[in-house]
């Protein structure tokens, strides 16, 4: 991890995983910015974390169960109003298979 640097190719790969398109100029900018941020985050390598448990949440609570009861159920119309396109009670999306060319 020490001295690790992020490359332009890695930035482009990560952007594609995150469903983001980058222009050439943006790819350069984010490579520069993420490189600077890496200078900070790679300092963690200095810390001895042998046998240290990770903390992903600070709440002491365990899984909470409740009855599966529908509340405020009659709101599908209001919900659909936020969707860019809908037909009846369904949200419309573009073709998934791209005319059969993919997949």
């Amino acid at each position: 991890m020490a001295n690790e640097q992020i490359t332009r190719e890695e930035v482009e790969h990560v952007a594609s995983l995150a469903k983001l398109a980058l222009t050439d100029a943006e790819a350069d900018m984010f490579t520069d910015h993420l490189g600077k941020i890496f200078d900070i985050v790679t300092t963690l390598a200095e810390v001895d974390t042998e046998n240290v448990k990770p903390t992903y949440s600070v709440t002491e609570m365990q899984t909470v169960l409740r009855d599966d009861v529908a509340v405020n159920a009659q709101q599908s119309e209001a919900l659909l109003n936020n969707a860019p396109e809908h037909q009846g009670t369904l949200i419309k999306v573009p073709a998934i298979l791209n005319g059969g060319a993919e997949g």
Binding site: E4, V41, L44, A45, V47, T49, V52, P54
Partner: peptide, 15 residues
């Protein structure tokens, strides 16, 4: 491991 888990371990040390 080197990023996410490591950071979560450092979080434990901070706590």
């Amino acid at each position: 491991d080197a990023f996410f888990k490591k950071a979560a371990q450092v979080r434990t040390l901070m706590n």
